[in-house]
Design a protein around this nucleic acid. Structure first.
Length: 985
RNA sequence: GGGCCCGUGGCUCAGACUGGUCAGAGCGCCCGGCUGAUAACCGGGAGGUCGGGGGUUCAAGUCCCCCCGGGCCCA
């Protein structure tokens, strides 16, 4: 037999939420839950590791974790053994830069003087401190991941897994060292990936100059080029023109200038020149091979070696008629497009700039200068040599370092690459294998991105990261790639406690080819490599947990914000395809960004950022969870205090549903549900709704339509239970007929009990509180988290019955409308409700749910019929017909109304005395007019039953009232009535 | 310049993949009611040419095209 206990009346999440969190922690609920599910079918969730750049997560990150948590809870409820390991992306430049700032460093030299070992330990310390603090914030929102056993990318085991991957790539022949122009931060002194660069462009003011390159062998003929980076001119080796555009030779003063016809007017306007004359017109392609003189060749030493190289080359892709002169200055050492075209023409690559962004000796006069500082000197030198056509400035978007804001440069360096370009097709195919929610996330956005794929630079010239496991012989260049710590031990006899730099840098061994010294390439790896291998490195594969990995690959579910299409979703796909020839995840849910109340991005520095503790100060944890989970996940979400308050009110209604129900159900024997055939239609209806709700929640959760599932349960609890079912049930639960009260009690209990585990997916704290305080039986587990989601039973779902109830609702609503138009209050019973309709289902509904109509419309009779033609009627229409209320008031109606008024007054007085219904009984004494007396006589039983009165006595003299009674004078419909209530001891 | 998403009553948003009971909900506002869920709850009302225009169709917030506005990504 099950029993329930009364639930605390006050909805006070501020009080119970911390208690529940503490209970979960102390009772090790999740740990035991994981143990309990061991051996069940597995569901592998993979956490996209957040970057611990701060001790406080962004509210959007909390949203992200809540989404994950709801899926994890749901799958646990379905009985799965869920892998719920959280992850942390701990390496990389942001942590390094923060550490540098904390130590007051400005360059790599400072780090090396300080000691790489100490520096790396500081980085680790910072990452650890932040991830611990962030963990605390996530736990506050009831995120039930395995916080004690996260994967962290700085752990030796993780690094070993990553190394194994590098070795495998090497063995597949895709790892190569190459020379390329790359984005470079002169402060951090490292290469940056395209992805890192695209993060931040800033408006910068730069020179905008037109320069004349004299055609070799001519007196006064020039190619006119345009550039905003004068410092790249020392690296110039060619001029690109468009083969299919018209070019012109123009006379300006004594000079003949060559430029694109389409740009002529704009250029002359820019330069403020009004007088010019076209002397010749030709196709761009005819310029191919035309040689010219570099204007600074006397100053730049490397240019003297290149005298015969400078010439015109063709490019359709990179010459635009949108800006410039149509003659594009090309420095293959300082531009990706230039490099590509240069390769095609076999042009030399010149990049006379060092890692700190200073010109090298090759740059002659400019050696030692910071490149951006050299701009003006170069411009003056051009002017002195008569090569400057026009000088201006421009404000344009220019890439800066995403961590330190230093303007980036492009310089050519040796880097390690992974060849990907030939994998484009395979990646596209694999990306199509994953289920994307929403569909367009994968289909359009992702595909577009994959089409622009290039080889991947995986080396970085920094300290805090996974060391690139490449060793090379200093004498013969022989290369070995290492896949584990054990290999290091075997080769070098070194046992490393920490696989990071600088400790790993000291490991050397003898070259098997020539006996020279094998030394590690000093680079570390791109952090996107770190998170990209998480699908196997998080479990330590292949050095550990091989069987587990076989079972869980590919992972079932990942979810991150839409910024991660090009980030983690892609890096996982890339690593999955490189190492296992397949996409490593089955389903991806792409979620939106959290915006502020005005729809702008939320940022600390914009000051519109709401720290998670601030949210907790104002609303319940479950409120925030429900708030975010009821929104369409893949759209951006607007933070809203108003919205949160509103959600909190809805949760308090749910709480009240349970309070109300337990008030009636407590201390009752609540056994098995009676067979369906014996049930009242309203009970059959509510059970049908219960199973429909469960079905819908299960289906939509499995589709990752979290908003559908969460709204479904809200509307079940609020619209169906609170607004309708409980109103009807209230009277039935107190029925004198034991079998009626019993049936309704059992059904209500059943419905609320089965709903609890469903509710706990979204509002785990509230569910737990209700479960522990009221619903947990003697043999039940000690936490709601252990409960399984009951499977929906199609046999219990009756769509027709649900439809009928919808009609009943509209009839009730129409009858309310008719009443309010006629000015008759709801408490006043009326004689008759006539429903006029042609719709068969409505007619059946009226028959089936007559009881509901009688109580909800407060009438004595309900019948189907024709529109009445005589008498006093109030009338209103609903979608399938009309309702008519008989307004004629006989004795029956007047006395009935009076009886309800009297009941209500007695109830108010009971309450004032603090008496509990069903527990304490009373005696009532009433003094009033003849109607009051008659109402009391006729409705004696009802009034006495409703108010738990042993006796109700109509008196003519006040002296008949016992001394200790509580008396009050009332006015009821213009009548004076005295009521006394006395508690029966 | 290219791609993607969004634009539904005063506010916040469902509905759009699978055209046809989809013009909805909550809040706010106005009117009324209920009263052992009560610093709650219930009913009703006003309010939207579903950003604009064109097209497909017997039928279009829903599909197609163009434009406008907002956002994101890329170049």
């Amino acid at each position: 037999m099950s029993r329930v206990r009364q639930l605390t009346r006050n909805f006070d999440p501020k009080k119970y939420e911390p208690e529940i969190l503490k209970f979960w922690d102390e009772a090790r609920v999740y740990e035991r839950l994981r143990d309990a599910r061991k051996g069940s079918k597995r569901f592998h969730f993979l956490d996209g590791p957040p970057y611990p750049s701060s001790d406080m997560p962004h509210p959007g990150t909390v949203w992200n974790k809540i989404i994950k948590d709801s899926v994890i809870r749901f799958k646990r409820g379905e009985g799965y053994d869920v892998l719920d390991k959280p992850g942390w992306d701990t390496h990389g430049l942001p942590i390094e830069v923060m550490t540098e700032k904390a130590l007051g460093f400005t360059s790599k030299k400072d780090i090396e003087n300080y000691g790489i070992d100490k520096f790396v330990l500081k980085c680790k310390e910072l990452a650890t401190k932040n991830l611990k603090s962030m963990t605390g914030h996530f736990k506050e929102f009831a995120v039930s991941m395995d916080w004690d056993r996260p994967y962290r990318t700085f752990e030796n085991e993780y690094i070993e897994s990553a190394w194994w991957g590098v070795k495998k790539i090497w063995e597949s022949g895709r790892l190569y060292e190459g020379e390329r122009p790359v984005h470079w931060c002169p402060r951090c002194e490292t290469v940056l990936s395209d992805y890192e660069v695209s993060e931040s462009y800033k408006d910068l003011m730069d020179p905008s100059i037109y320069v004349k390159f004299r055609v070799r062998g001519s007196e006064n003929e020039y190619l006119l080029i345009w550039t905003t980076t004068p410092w790249t001119l020392p690296g110039n080796v060619a001029v690109m023109v468009h083969p299919n555009e018209k070019y012109v030779k123009v006379r300006v003063g004594r000079d003949l200038l060559i430029l694109a016809k389409a740009r002529l007017e704009a250029v002359m306007k820019d330069a403020g020149i009004e007088k010019y004359e076209i002397v010749e017109e030709f196709e761009g392609r005819t310029l191919e091979g035309l040689k010219y003189e570099h204007p600074l060749e006397d100053l730049v030493s490397v240019q003297q070696r290149l005298k015969d190289e400078h010439r015109v080359v063709l490019s359709e892709e990179y010459v635009t008629m949108e800006e410039g002169s149509g003659c594009v200055h090309s420095a293959p050492g300082h531009g990706k497009e230039d490099f590509e075209v240069g390769m095609r023409y076999g042009l030399p690559v010149v990049s006379p700039v060092d890692e700190r962004g200073r010109f090298t000796e090759d740059a002659g006069k400019y050696a030692g200068l910071q490149v951006r500082e050299a701009n003006n000197i170069i411009i003056e030198d051009l002017d002195e040599r008569g090569a400057l056509f026009h000088r201006g400035t421009v404000i344009h978007k220019y890439p800066v370092c995403w961590r330190c804001d230093t303007p980036l440069i492009i310089r050519t360096t040796k880097q390690w690459f992974v060849k990907l370009t030939d994998l484009r097709e395979k990646l596209l195919e694999e990306s199509g294998r994953a289920k994307w929610v929403p569909k367009w996330g994968g289909e359009r956005r992702f595909r577009d991105w994959l089409l622009g794929l290039e080889d991947w630079i995986i080396s970085r010239q920094r300290y805090w990261g996974i060391p690139l496991p490449i060793w090379r012989c200093e004498s013969c260049g022989h290369v070995e790639v290492i896949g584990s710590a054990k290999e290091i031990e075997e080769k070098a006899g070194a046992k490393l406690e920490d696989l990071h730099r600088p400790w790993v840098d000291g490991v050397t061994w003898k070259c098997p080819e020539c006996g020279g010294e094998m030394r590690r390439v000093p680079d570390i790896m791109d952090v996107w490599y770190d998170s990209g291998v998480s699908f196997f490195a998080s479990v330590g594969y292949p050095h550990r947990n091989r069987e587990v990995f076989q079972e869980i690959f590919p992972v079932d579910f990942i979810t991150e914000g839409h910024d991660q299409i090009r980030g983690w979703f892609f890096s996982l796909l890339r690593m999955g395809t490189l190492l296992f020839n397949q996409v490593p995840y089955r389903s991806v849910l792409m979620h939106g960004f959290m915006l502020d109340e005005k729809g702008r991005e939320m940022h600390k520095r914009l000051g519109n950022y709401v720290p998670p503790p601030e949210i907790l100060k104002n609303v319940a944890r479950d409120t925030f969870r429900f708030f975010v989970l009821t929104k369409v996940p893949w759209q951006d979400l607007r933070f809203s205090w108003k919205g949160l308050k509103e959600m909190e009110r809805r949760l308090s209604v749910i709480w009240n549903v349970y309070v109300f129900a337990t008030t009636y159900l407590r201390d009752r024997e609540l056994g098995q549900l009676p067979p369906k055939e014996e049930l009242d239609p309203v009970n059959r209806w509510v059970l049908s709704r219960l199973h429909s709700m469960m079905k819908r929640v299960r289906e939509s959760m499995n589709e990752y339509h979290l908003h559908v599932a969460s709204n479904e349960i809200l509307s079940f609890l609020i619209d169906d239970l609170s607004h309708l079912y409980l109103r009807v049930a209230r009277k039935k639960l107190r029925s004198k007929d034991r079998s009626v009260a019993d049936q309704w009690g059992k059904v209500l209990f059943h419905v609320l009990r089965e709903t609890l585990p469903y509710l706990s997916i979204f509002a785990p704290l509230m569910s737990e509180k209700i479960y522990l305080e009221s619903f947990r039986g003697e043999n039940d587990p000690d936490s709601v988290n252990f409960l399984l989601l009951k499977d929906p039973d199609d046999g219990m779902i009756d769509p027709e019955l649900e439809d009928m109830m919808r009609h009943i609702r509209s009839i009730i609503s129409a009858s309310g409308f008719a009443r309010s138009n006629a000015g008759i209050r709801k408490r006043q019973p009326l004689r008759e409700l006539v429903v006029v309709t042609e719709n068969d289902m409505v007619r059946r509904a009226v028959e089936v749910f007559k009881d509901v109509l009688v109580t909800e419309a407060n009438v004595r009779e309900v019948r189907l019929g024709e529109a009445p033609t005589d008498g006093k009627w109030a009338h209103a229409d609903f979608s399938e017909g009309s309702v008519f209320l008989n307004l004629e008031m006989g004795d029956e109606e007047i006395l009935g109304g009076l009886a309800r008024e009297l009941t209500r007054r007695i109830q108010l007085m009971r309450k004032e005395l603090g008496l509990t219904i069903g527990l304490e009984r009373i005696e009532v004494y009433v003094q009033g007019d003849e109607d009051v007396k008659r109402a009391l006589e006729r409705y004696y039983d009802e009034i006495a039953w409703d108010s738990d009165a042993n006796v109700i006595k109509f008196i003519s003299n006040e002296r008949e009232v016992p001394g200790s009674s509580f008396g009050k004078e009332w006015e009821v419909d213009g009548r004076r009535v005295f009521i006394w209530v006395k508690k029966v001891e």
